[in-house]
Nucleic acid binder design. Sequence first.
DNA 1: TGTACATCAGTGAACGCGCGTTCACTGATGTAC
DNA 2: TGTACATCAGTGAACGCGCGTTCACTGATGTAC
Lengths: 186, 186
Amino acid sequence: MGRVSQAQAEENRKRVVESASRLFREQGTQVSVADLMKAAGLTHGGFYKRFSSKEALIGEATAHAFDELTEGRGARLDESGGERAAAQKALIDVYLSTAHRDSPADGCPAAALASDMAREPGEGEARRVYTEGVRDFARWLDTDDTDGLTRLATMVGALVLARATNGSPLSEEILTAARSALTGTA
Amino acid sequence: MGRVSQAQAEENRKRVVESASRLFREQGTQVSVADLMKAAGLTHGGFYKRFSSKEALIGEATAHAFDELTEGRGARLDESGGERAAAQKALIDVYLSTAHRDSPADGCPAAALASDMAREPGEGEARRVYTEGVRDFARWLDTDDTDGLTRLATMVGALVLARATNGSPLSEEILTAARSALTGTA
DNA sequence: TGTACATCAGTGAACGCGCGTTCACTGATGTAC
DNA sequence: TGTACATCAGTGAACGCGCGTTCACTGATGTAC
């Protein structure tokens, strides 16, 4: 294929990180390097020209997924009370929807990558980024009466259990129960 | 090594299921057949004399882990109000402890196996058993004001996030926040 | 602006390794008499 | 109760395959003049 322009090369690299962040959320971090590269329209051989190891890509892809999540949240932390509560409620409704359950690739990395992070060896870049992302997300979810960490735990737990029981009616029951508990709506 | 008595063979098989149920919770279902057999003190060759596939073992090991959990809960569903609430509080305190966070092998399968179940293809035995186990556990957690499903979601989410962020102070904060929200104690 | 050549992004074959699964073999157990 | 032999639990080598990573190669891009 020959050499490719610097701009194109930069774009290719970005595409690898983006599609990896989707594939890792969808299938876990054990997706193969060959599949990751193929998803970005490349062959596996060039991987090590751009990334020092698969581990390194996991770190970058995790960071990318959390960045997306932060953009998605949109609203700033210092927003005024009423609007903030409304933004929280809107996000929780989307978070605990069957659509979110069924498309982990576009979804919350805190939920999708949790077990991979738990099994990630030692103190890698990925874990650091993940922990920071969880902290930020929880802070955004704080209310006057409930710790954002508890609300996030309920959301992540409900999503993870709904995914694991998908195909059974229980899956929807879990989402509905958690939504109702967190937003006061069925 | 020659033939082994039927009683011994039966015991060996049980040991494989038991140690697999620990290893799967600890490291995920992608632990190799060779490692599973070694953990039970056997070599990998004999595996297919006792199990039709690795999938089948995952099903049995999942069932075994949930059976253990049910025994661990001890108290019957129809227990009287006060005692039941006390048993629930006791279990929640253990569930959200750093000890439970740090030893997934003896811990809750609903939390430890969630992502593996979500990625398990199709409608296997393992998923069915898992879903049933989650339903039972949630039923046991029901109170007059809160759906057991929501309480379980909070517990599972907190445990899973605490494991993924282990090594950071955030990990303990998550456990403490959830414990306090669920039992009213710090 | 045009030419000559060095650079290097991406390719595809290859590396050593571990996977799930199969199979010929072993020798103690279980059984028929 | 004792003997002869069939059974079969467990072993270890082997299968085809996919993994993460390396590397010689290609040819268009970028640059020096």
